[in-house]
Design a protein around this nucleic acid. Sequence first.
DNA 1: GTCTATAGTCCGATAGAC
DNA 2: GTCTATCGGACTATAGAC
Lengths: 217, 217
Amino acid sequence: MPRWEHGSEDRLKKAAIELFDEQGFENTSVIEISERARVTTRTFFRYFSDKREVLFAGSDELRAMLVEKILQAPDVGEPLKVVTAVLSEFDWESLGSRNSQRQRQAVIAANPELLERDLSKNHSIAVGFMDALRQRGVDADIARLAAHVGIQLFCTAYIHWLEAGVKSDLALMSESAMSLLASIVPTNAQLPFPGEKSARVAAKQADRSPLRRTGQR
Amino acid sequence: MPRWEHGSEDRLKKAAIELFDEQGFENTSVIEISERARVTTRTFFRYFSDKREVLFAGSDELRAMLVEKILQAPDVGEPLKVVTAVLSEFDWESLGSRNSQRQRQAVIAANPELLERDLSKNHSIAVGFMDALRQRGVDADIARLAAHVGIQLFCTAYIHWLEAGVKSDLALMSESAMSLLASIVPTNAQLPFPGEKSARVAAKQADRSPLRRTGQR
DNA sequence: GTCTATAGTCCGATAGAC
DNA sequence: GTCTATCGGACTATAGAC
C-alpha cells in the first residue's frame, strides 16, 4: 500500500474545477482545493505554478503538438490557411465533451484573471506558430499576421462550434470565418496607392521602409 | 503646510518605472516602490488595483477615447479600415517619446506577468471596438473579426513604428500591414460566394447569418 | 513539511481643503 | 460640516524558500 494516494494531480484538477464551478474562482482558495484533494498546498504548487494554471494543464503539450504540425505541413505557401487548417484538424473533442468545454469557457469568461491567462496561452500558441512559419521560410511580418489572424479566425469558429449542435464542423466554421475576413479586407483596387502607383509599386515602397515584404503573391 | 505631500500617484508611477528598469519587475516589491514615493503600500493599492497596473495607468481612458472615435466614425461600411484608421490617427507620441515607449515595451516583454496584462489591455480595447461596431449596426461576427484583426494589424505597424526612425508614419505602416494581410487572405475566386465582387454585398449577406449557415461551399 | 515574504483587503482614524 | 487623501495596523492568501 502506497504511503500517499496516487493521482494527486488529477484529484487537484477535479477538485479545482468543481470548486470554481460551485463558488467561483476568487472565492476558492488553494487551501480549499488541496484539502478536497487530500494533499497540502505545497503539493498543489508542485504541480501548478500558480492557482490559475490548474485550469490550463496540458496547454504546453497542446501548443507543442500544434507547432509541430506547422513544421510538418507539406506546403506553407498559404500560411493563413495552414494555420487554420492545423487548428481545425485537431480533434478538440479529445479534450473533453463539448459541454465540459463550454463550462470551462464560462468559468474563464467569468473571471478577469483567468481570461488574462487564457489570452496569454493563445498568444503563446501564436508566437509558436509565427516562429514555426519563419523557420519554414515565411517572411517575418507575414508569419506574425498569419499566426495571429489565423488564431483569431479559429477562435471565431470555435465560439460558434461550442454553441452549435453536435453536427457542426469546425473546418466548415473556419472556412466561413475566412470568407467573412475576405469580405472585409480591402481588395487591391482599394489600396492606398491606386492608379499611377500599382500594387507592384506599393510592394516596392513597402520593401524599402515600412514592412519588409518578400515577393510572394 | 500639508501633512502629506501631494502628487502621490505621480511619484508612485515614477518610482515604479525607475525601479523596474533598475532591477526588474519581479525583483521589485510594492513596499520598495512605496518607500521611494514616500507613502505606504496602502496608498499604492489605493491608486493601482495591483502591482502591474502601475505600468498601465491611463489605459482605461485611452480605450474609452478610441471607442468613442469608433462610435463617431462617419461611416462603418469598411469596419476593418475604421479600426486601423482610429488607431493610426491617434497621436501616440503624446503618450511619451518613442524612446520611452520602446523602453516600456522592453520592460513588458521581459516579464510574463506584464506581457499577460498587456495582452489583456489590448483585448479589452478589441472588445470595446467590437461592441461599438455592433452598436453601429455591424454584424456580430464581422465586428469581432474587424476589431481583433484591426488591432493585430496596428500592432504590426506599431512594432515597426517603434523601431523605425523619426520620419516613419503610423498610418503608412498600417496601410502596409493591410496590404500584407490582403496578400495572404484567399481571394474571392476561392470564396464560397464566387459571384460577389463587393465587400459590402458580402457583408450584407453575412448580416443574415454568416457562420450559422450550414450549406456553404 | 514548515516557515516566511509579498500581495492585496478591510476598517477606522486623522488632517487639510472646500 | 463634508469631502478627499492619507496613514496605521491587522488580516488572509499566494507563492517561494528553507
